[in-house]
Design a protein around this nucleic acid. Sequence first.
DNA 1: TCTACAACTTAGTACCACCTAC
DNA 2: GTAGGTGGTACTAAGTTGTAGA
Length: 666
Amino acid sequence: MATATAPEAAGTQKADIFGDAVELPVISRPKPKFELMLTDSSDSDEDLPLAQRKLSLAAARPQPAARPASQASRPPSQSSQRTDTKRKSTGTGGSIKKKARESDASTRPRRSEQAAPDAAEIRWTTLEHSGVLFPPEYQPHGVKMLYDGVPVDLTPEQEEVATFYAVMLETDYMTKETFKKNFWEGFSEVLGPKHAIQCLRKCDFTPIYEWHMAERERKRALTKEEKLRLKEEREAAEADYKFARVDGKQEQVGNFRVEPPGLFRGRGEHPKMGKIKKRIYPRDITINIGKGCPLPKHPFPGQTWREVRHDQTVTWLAYWRDPVNTKEYKYVFLAATSTWKSESDLLKYEKARKLKDSIADIRAEYTRNWDARDRRERQMATALYFIDKLALRAGHEKDEDEADTVGCCTLKVENVECLPPNHIKFDFLGKDSIRYENTVDVDPKVFQNLQLFSREDANGKAKQPGDQLFECFDAQDLNVRLKELMDGLSVKVFRTYNASIVLDRLLTGEVDSESVEAKKAAYDTANKEVAVLCNHQRAVPKGHVGQMEKLTAKMEALHAELAELQADLKLALKGLPGKDGRKLNAESLENRASKKQQQIEKAEINFKVKEDLKTVALGTSKINYLDPRITVAWCKRNEVPLERIFNRSLYQKFAWAMEVEPEYAF
DNA sequence: TCTACAACTTAGTACCACCTAC
DNA sequence: GTAGGTGGTACTAAGTTGTAGA
């Protein structure tokens, strides 16, 4: 039985992967397979544990100004009251959408220009980097697509767009009319009105697709040496862009590559899927860099960056406007391992831990408000119950040109079904158009409220499909309320809190096995609980059915072999020869049967795990929701090598959590 | 007061390199 | 040596949030 290792008894050892400054309690684990990228140790607080350092940093930084007293003390009933009339129902199945944004962002003064940023907002003093890496210019291949069975000449620009489409011929997008319609709009524009190609139906992109597949195969068939040479060339080209220097410290850049052109691959039924994502040039990109630093170079003579800023209040290095969703931006940020991201992670988990101290009061408050006379109060309290218990996302109103997905605050009446006596069935498309389907038992008061909210609005008018379930408030209103309950609280904190507290609870007991395999399985089970809670789904892996069939056949073969061994063993124990007259050795047969049994058990576990997890994504919660200190502490207590749980990336991302005490509780 | 922007986090998927079993 | 499986990683879409400014 594994026992928790007391820190005093455990002592500490230097762990070279973390650099000299970090000490780990002794646990029996092999040297990790990978090295952490060492951070600059010139910080004056280098003797502090990393976690404390970050906290100290956070504490040292002036806190943002408190909310105006008027806002802070405003009684809930007086806060931005949203009425039924404000949010009109479409009654046609569509959700209420925001008015399309029309103003040009470039005409708006930027935050940093409005006034000198106060000290609380300054994120850096010096910032040096090499900008962004552009994808190579298009190289025409000369393969002709067919129109009405006849090869057609295309200009390089037209050929490029045709190729965007051709490479997607075998994807599900080809079954989507929206995708094809949007592509055709873009393609026909590139072709021009007088082009021979006049409709998509007669287009045959197969020759280009076949060329693409042959290219892929050619690259796959390169020799090891050729592949290595290409890799080295690629790395040499990227070297300058991989790192930035922030206040003198080298930091990894996350996404330094400019997104290449292609077709927009929106998820679910995104109305813009198939639109052409045009090529981005320096003239589209705004660079953020320290004053006096050399400007990043780019390979386009005659072009200049769209703009160069020296905004010390933000952490992005570059951005450009999304060419498809033109109201949005694409940013280049530092990598997850950077100090900025680590700080931000730590603060996120500390905020979630703070919620732990307030959660009882918050629950008491929303429970009281299930009976509130004010409909808005009652709706908010009901919604918050679901956010808390089911870890639902906030859900903001969306434009017509976005996928029609919802969160808690934007649920429509048809997304919930009240099943007496107290079951609520949820069925809606959430983020990424992932379906949330869940039936839960709720408090009778919540059940009554939901029946009312889905039946009629505040004026007693019957609701129709497409109408909002909670029509009296939105996510922003709820966040304002949450800030009254706890400083810094917002809806998303509940997801972090719930994910981490569930993991913490599930990992509290001792694992009933000495084997690392069994311990890891216990961890994965807990991880799975969280993933299910957060509705982290994935597509069933390709070939899953085939794999399961193979596993089934393998298990059947193993069982048959075991049966044979057991039959022989019976004969051997009676001193009889085998069916074929062979002499049998009982001891050997017993060993072989035992090994076979183990093989069967292993295969059965493998089968079950595979089937269980075929639609569950474990990684998302590990990366975003689970306080890594829970995992690190559990590994220390249970003598599980951390690299069995965290891969290299997570190891680096959570470097700040490594020296946590084994007794750490979320 | 409200909307839209700007900045950031969270998310699933495609692809590729590596490992393992045969 | 090879095929198939697996895990890591890059990519980029799609959320959330706080707040400026009309």
